[in-house]
Design a protein around this nucleic acid. Sequence first.
RNA 1: GCCGACGUAGCUCAGUAGGUUAGAGCGCCUGAUUGUGGAUCAGGAGGUCGAUGGUUCAAAUCCAUCCGUCGGUACCA
Length: 473
Amino acid sequence: MKIEPRLSRGLRDLLPQAAMARRQLIGKVRAVYENYGFSPLETPAVEYLDILSGSAGEEAQQSIFRVVNPEEEALGLRFDLTVPLSRVVSRYAQIELPFRRYQLAQVWRADKPQPGRFRQFTQFDIDSVGAPSEIADTEILAVICDALDAVEAGPYKVKFSSRKILDLLLRYAGIGEDLAADVFRVLDKLDKLGLEKVKKELTAGYEDESGAPVRGLGLASAQVSKIEDFLSITGDTRGEVLKTLGGEFRDVAGSGEQLAAVESISSHLDTLGYRSDRVMLDLGIARGLAYYTGPVFEAVLLDAPQFGSVFGGGRYDDLVSRFGGPPVPATGASLGVDRLLAALEHLGKVSQRKTTAQVFVSTMDRALMSEYLQIAFELRRAGIRTEINVGRPKKLGKQLQRADRLEIPYVLIMGADEAARGMVTVKEMEVGRARSSGIAGHEQWKAARFGQQEIPRAALVETLQRLLERPAA
RNA sequence: GCCGACGUAGCUCAGUAGGUUAGAGCGCCUGAUUGUGGAUCAGGAGGUCGAUGGUUCAAAUCCAUCCGUCGGUACCA
């Protein structure tokens, strides 16, 4: 019986072109993370279900992929990297705190797939665990900026706020703490839904376009108008926003202390040159996650806002102590690699390379096979990425066609003629590609031998190294 | 999860008041051109019409269920 080569929903393969673009992006971000002195961590994809679900509500558990093992343990695939990080910090007493780690890994959520959203996706997290200082939060905001600069994502906005500010808001608007999580979750949709729908969802609820009811939270109109006042606070700089906010919250208990903490982050950022044009205090940022306790972060690309936030994160001072022991304050951010990649691709900023090979060694004459191999390995030992024809010995035309389709820049041609003279023909494929449209007859095309030169075999490595160092055509 | 639309070749899509062997363009393969990628020309391969069940003398076409894709909504720990 034939087996369909299918994939379960929301899963996908990354063919070489996509995989190479991803690796390139990851390499740039990793360099930034390491520049801040963070070190890698790797953990298993599979965790015990109670470890995974402890932080999540019951509904959330629906989107955990269950794993079956022969011992029939209750296992699941990780849905983020923060929970495994907390487990690791709790498990190994020898870990030096603050633990500054980055982790690049696949995570799984059994949600409905959407464009740019899959059931298996990659996160690239950076966190400081055991770091109570607002310096740690400042660092995270800065590293987000540096990473977005490094991948040349174009203009972006890193937005931050604080759960502490939102707690003040609850007091300011006279909303009970029991509603906190629900209110934050609704506020988090502000960007996506707009003020009107958010207001409706805070009060009586409404019916969306498809006719599905959206449950309201039942807040009073006086409370909602307080929230509206709060959300309308904007300014050109973080300082302005803080000043207005301070005025608005002047009668709220504890506001001075909490706002000073945010102000401290802001002034550190100013000192370092991360100004309000790219790191903005945005009071609409809430983050859906329940475990955040302090500053929360998000980053969007201004040229591709439809892809949503590419970075998200915040401070979570209570998550680690879930595994027992004293409180371990922590802060960090997560890069949605797939989302960022999708956005960059949309912006035409992703490498289109189809293969890693820089040079293709064609094989024409069976008698010279050993020569071809030696040439290929000489190039490889010199660090030049080289493919030798390993397919059926086809005609030269077929081999050039392959090099052309894979966009391998250089092809080496050596028949008995060249070999006898101790020469090798180096063909630069781009030359012919550029001239192709001006050539009518095939005879003329063949005779032109575009981009070819004969190089002494002894000078081959050196010549190719020089050619490859030129700026890419 | 809920509501709706849609699933025909690798891709984009024709084809249904049920009726011989299901088509096109692009792509792919072979050759013209035994050492030159493009273009051109000639030939060729590739589909159990998403799956299963049903109605019928007869189903890509009608019905049911399932799966998948897309749009909206919920969720996003």
